[in-house]
């Protein structure tokens, strides 16, 4: 196993777990949405680590495509969550 794989792989795991923990511990919607995005970033990092095959080799493009899909899905979910959170604040203000 490459050192690069181990270093970034562990970082990915850390981001995933940190995000998960954040979602469960926070109470405000915005903080939870942030944590979910961190959690997702961790999983994406793991995918990209899988794709990396060392300096001289072409990386595996499949995980890259999956992560691109994942990033777009994450931003969509974030947009919906933020719209719901904003609506909630509006209701509370009226």
């Amino acid at each position: 196993m490459l050192a690069t794989t181990i270093i970034y792989g562990f970082a990915g795991i850390c981001l995933f777990v940190l995000g998960l923990r954040g979602v469960l511990l926070h109470t405000t919607a915005l903080a939870r949405i942030l944590a979910l995005n961190v959690c997702g970033a961790g999983v994406f990092l793991l995918f990209v680590v899988l794709a990396y095959r060392g300096a001289g080799m072409t990386p595996d493009p499949v995980p890259h495509a999956l992560v691109l899909t994942g990033i777009v899905v994450a931003v969509s979910a974030t947009a919906l969550a933020l719209a719901l959170a904003r609506r909630l604040r509006e209701i509370d203000h009226d």
């Binding site: 970034y8 992560v67 691109l68 990033i71 777009v72 931003v75 974030t78």
Partner: peptide
């Protein structure tokens, strides 16, 4: 990191969507 791990497509996408658009959405929410 994506650039370092030889994923330039993702580096572009992350800068534009992950940090850019998501950032704009979050700042507007702030």
């Amino acid at each position: 990191i994506w650039a370092r791990l030889r994923a330039p497509d993702l580096a572009l996408a992350e800068a534009a969507i992950g940090a850019g658009i998501a950032g704009a959405l979050l700042i507007a929410a702030l």
